[in-house]
Design a protein around this nucleic acid. Structure first.
Length: 270
DNA sequence: ATGTGACCCTGGATGC
DNA sequence: TGCATCCAGGGTCACA
């Protein structure tokens, strides 16, 4: 579920109450996530203090000084803050106790990941191969234009390629392309500089508006306090097949690209 | 190199 | 009610 906005909302939600805290307990209820959960997590974490929580793409990086706990929420993961002793439910796979505060990972589909990294996390292959952060200054229209020359892949798939630009998933790819008026099927390499001039700010604004709204809550995503985001109320096209385009009134269409649903308006997007 | 499709896993919605 | 089918926010891998 979570794309960049939801991961960022999660980071901002858990950071204030956990930073500076010391791990007093670790409970693992399964080993089976995307990668096997490190079995020595209790030894690695208990007694160690959380220095900071950073985000890179859709990864959260919890810095303990002696190493970094890397977490990915996959498609259905969420992190919640609870009071120590709260009863676990189905799919609650990992608890980190910080005294009376409990950080709990729930992930029904178990596509998420928890890894322990030693040394510079930026050099780990999962992180070092990532593309640019879309909210950082280096992500410019000219950069995107240059990077996509010669690429025949559809712009929607290019936006979702984390080795190019991180954090844009299925929802925000469709939404950004709608806002920019670009047909999601257009070959990335055939899009002009002028059109990227429009697309890049629209991507930024879409992501920033979603963060401001607390992310999108479809199915599984909840905030660290259990509440919901409401950006889904502002969707122009995602999940609106057959409904009227909010701009021109014609029916929103859907199609499949690389086995993922794409939503668009054929009149507003060319 | 680039671009597809299968696959990891579970649950909810839909249709018969 | 039960069962089968399809679909879902992500990412990696094998293969053409």
């Amino acid at each position: 579920m979570p794309e960049l906005p939801e991961v960022e909302v999660t980071r901002r939600g858990i950071m204030p109450s956990l930073t500076g805290g010391t791990v007093s307990g670790v409970v693992m209820r399964t080993q089976r996530l995307r990668y096997p959960l490190p079995s020595d997590l209790p030894r690695l974490l208990i007694g160690h203090t959380l220095r900071s929580i950073a985000r890179r793409g859709k990864y959260l990086l919890l810095d303990f000084g002696t190493g970094t706990l890397l977490m990915h929420l996959g498609m259905s993961g969420s992190l919640r803050l609870l009071t120590s002793g709260a009863a676990p439910e189905k799919h609650d796979h990992l608890d980190l106790e910080f005294g009376q505060t409990l950080l709990r990972l729930r992930d029904p589909r178990r596509f998420g990941a928890v890894l322990w990294l030693e040394g510079d996390p930026a050099r780990h292959p999962l992180i070092s191969t990532l593309g640019l952060e879309p909210l950082e200054d280096e992500f410019t229209p000219l950069w995107l234009y240059t990077q996509t020359r010669g690429r025949n892949t559809a712009i929607k798939q290019a936006l979702m390629d984390s080795h190019l630009v991180v954090g844009i998933g299925n929802i925000y790819a469709s939404e950004s392309l709608f806002r920019a008026g670009i047909d999601p099927r257009t070959a990335a390499g055939k899009i002009s500089r002028q059109r990227y001039q429009r697309l890049v700010p629209e991507i930024r604004q879409t992501l920033e508006a979603a963060i401001a709204a607390g992310g999108s809550s479809l199915r599984d995503f909840v905030h660290s306090d259990g509440s919901s985001g409401y950006f889904q109320q502002q969707y122009f096209v995602y999940g609106r097949t057959g409904e009227p385009c909010r701009i021109c009134g014609s029916n929103v269409k859907s199609l499949r690209q690389a086995n993922r649903a794409t939503f668009h308006c054929t009149r507003c997007q060319r």
